[in-house]
Design a protein around this nucleic acid. Structure first.
Lengths: 266, 266
DNA sequence: CTGAATCTTTGAGCTATATCAAAATAACGG
DNA sequence: CCGTTATTTTGATATAGCTCAAAGATTCAG
């Protein structure tokens, strides 16, 4: 009944990554591996190094720190920590969240492979969020001061980083629109379509994927309760727009889903 | 009954700016004036030129274009326009918004003096929003390509712009939290406190200010209806936490307002 | 200054989503 | 493998904020 093995043990995720890879060339490397470098990273054409030549990429490579993998539940940084680095997700996934004084945390973002996390600390050198691994994950740490220095020497790198920050602004603004004007159903669908295209970006299937986050996380992120998230996933399944098997999601009727959010979404 | 003249004619705003100036040194210059330069701009210590020396500021000045003022309702740029520049608001105010295919626009941001608008186009070189003057306003246009080039030469400028973009990310993420977890009352109060501190930043009174936007704009921004915005402003007035006279707002009980949003806000 | 258009307020009722409760399922540490 | 804990689902009920409606106030063009 379960079509794809769940990622419980933190290793099979890696296998899924290769297994579900769609179009991009497959490089046979464990993505958690620390022996990797930017030039042989399968994500280098959608990360900081885009369009850098070999020599430039080498210079970037020299400042990147590839730490040990993070276990599920480990923090990358915590709210109010001094900001030191930004991080590129190499494998696995993270969520960022804030704790309100009233106790309850609110999820502010999800970060999938090829995405940059930590930019919430750039402005005032203090992280505004906490970031935690949702599964066994690995990252490339890029010390920000060194990135700034290198960006002065490599115009393309500076340009790329401006673009990455700009994309983050656009992405968060999009969420603003979703939260301020979409119904619960539209939020969920928009979320699923967003995850889908983010997986597609790194060569994974856009129509069949594993959600690394809980229903509760999704609810916090979208401003809904767990119950509403659960009910709506069930309802969408009943309509045969999606298939839900715990955290495995299949998008069965893309056209209908796009219709729900109104075509200008994602 | 009306303590401060409304900004209907687009000129008295300027007068209010000087009149309500609190602590920063007053430079007697019409803020709409085009003869201004970064070095004598009263906003230069909270805009792009922070910490630049005279020579550096001159170089920045050389790429800044100071166009004619914008009349209320004029567009600075429109959704899908080619991205060319970012803009620093020198006086007046703008709002950014997106149009959904379903017709209704949604306000995505408000931009007050000393703030930068237009970063929504950096990532893919197409503006994701439209931007429109909410009153008679003037801006400094900074062509982005030239800003990038100059940033390679002036480390402090590069640093400042990274910080400004980082601040935009943090600001929009904050709105995410507000929309996903605050009640209507908390949203309104948070909004008022936010406007207050943004005015304070440019030396205006934090406790008494003019709202340049309509109730409808506020509602779209906060994911509420006009009616709810209106009702809640009335209710807050009834509690004597604020005083409302059309678009003139006085914050009467800061402590109570902060209590409502839960202390960790703003 | 005048009339039209826009914005704001207020009321009455409705509904989408929250809340509360509890059972069913899955994940996890030992 | 097993008991515990966390997550997910489902149901019943409550309510915050929406919708519809209409009057009042303000702004704006001419």
């Amino acid at each position: 009944m379960r079509p794809v093995e769940s990622s419980g043990n933190g290793i099979d995720v890696t296998e899924n990554v290769e297994e579900r890879r769609a179009t991009a060339p497959v490089v046979k490397l464990c993505p958690h591996n620390t022996g990797i470098s930017c030039s042989n990273c399968r994500l280098n054409d959608l990360c900081l190094p885009i369009a850098l030549n070999e020599g430039e990429m080498q210079q970037l490579d020299d400042i990147v720190e590839r730490n040990r993998p993070y276990k599920k539940g480990e923090h990358l940084y915590r709210q109010h920590d001094r900001f030191k680095s930004i991080y590129a997700v190499r494998s696995g996934s993270f969520k960022s969240y804030v704790l309100s004084s009233s106790g309850a945390g609110r999820v502010t973002g999800f970060y999938l492979p090829g995405e940059i996390i930590g930019m919430d600390g750039i402005a005032d050198r203090i992280h505004a969020n906490s970031a935690i691994a949702m599964e066994h994950s690995s990252i490339c740490e890029i010390p920000f001061n060194q990135l700034e220095s290198l960006s002065l020497k490599l115009p393309i790198l500076q340009h790329n980083f401006f673009s990455i920050m700009g994309a983050e602004i656009t992405k968060v603004q999009k969420v603003h629109t979703i939260l301020s004007s979409y119904s619960a159903e539209q939020r969920i669908v928009s979320f699923l379509l967003g995850i889908s295209s983010r997986y597609a970006r790194v060569g994974l299937s856009p129509s069949r994927f594993h959600l690394p986050m809980t229903r509760g996380d999704i609810g916090e992120y979208l401003g809904l309760t767990v119950e509403t998230v659960s009910r709506l996933l069930t309802a969408l399944q009943k309509k045969e727009y999606i298939e839900v098997d715990n955290r495995e999601i299949s998008l069965l009727n893309l056209a209908a889903l796009r219709e729900i959010v109104g075509a200008d979404d994602i």
